[in-house]
């Protein structure tokens, strides 16, 4: 069971063009290599989504594990392989929302603002920022952005993360959150207004 390691060798052999759907069908038939391949394809995006929702590694780690456990356990019930991605995101987002509720209730685990996070962050910004010219220098600003996002109600937060950060379409978001396009738009608009308000200090010229 545990001999499936993710190695560089696998990458070399992997057929990058393998159709998503046949991969899912193989996994549905219990092919463990197909499970591993699905995990490899999606672990990073699930991690990113959950991290955007939760703001720290420890909660994100739990949600990533739980997401894939649920996906693998229930994959054989997925009728439409094309719906896999939105189904996966749906599980990840909903587990994140649930996890946040528990965290709020227990008042524990604040956002990452430890030195390690900041230095990782600085490394990361150089590589991943969409506009490399606009690298954030100010740690206080980073903290305020985190607080502003943390301050949003779950649905708004989920919508803004998927739309503004992950660049997902409103249609896809409505599938993931299982709500109407109108609801997605409304949540997006409210979230934008709130963020604009909470970040006004950093927006004014």
């Amino acid at each position: 069971m545990l001999n499936l390691k993710l190695s560089a060798k696998d990458h070399a052999h992997e057929d990058a063009l393998e159709k998503q759907e046949s991969l899912i069908e193989r996994a549905q038939d219990g092919d463990e290599l197909a499970y591993k391949e699905l995990y490899k394809r999606y672990c990073r995006v699930v991690y990113t989504l959950a991290y955007q929702m939760l703001g720290n590694h420890s909660d994100t780690d739990e949600v990533v594990q739980e997401t894939f456990i649920r996906v693998f356990k229930n994959l054989h019930r997925l009728r439409n392989a094309k719906a896999f991605t939105s189904w996966l995101y749906q599980i990840a987002i909903n587990l994140s929302i649930d996890h946040r509720k528990v965290r709020t209730r227990r008042r524990m685990l604040p956002l990452d603002d430890n030195p390690e996070f900041v230095s990782n962050y600085e490394l990361a910004t150089a590589k991943h920022v969409r506009n490399p010219g606009q690298v954030l220098e100010n740690k206080e600003l980073l903290k305020q952005i985190n607080f502003a996002i943390e301050d949003l109600p779950e649905q708004q937060r989920a919508v803004i993360v998927m739309h503004e950060v992950e660049g997902m379409s409103k249609k896809m978001i409505s599938e993931v959150l299982d709500c109407s396009l109108v609801t997605v738009r409304t949540n997006l608009h409210h979230a934008r207004k709130k963020l604009r308000q909470n970040l006004r200090k950093y927006i004014q010229e």
């Binding site: 920022v129 950060v165 963020l195």
Partner: peptide, 12 residues
């Protein structure tokens, strides 16, 4: 505001 949100990066 939208740009600031996008700049919030996830440390891998």
């Amino acid at each position: 505001a939208s740009l600031l949100v996008q700049l919030r990066n996830v440390p891998q």
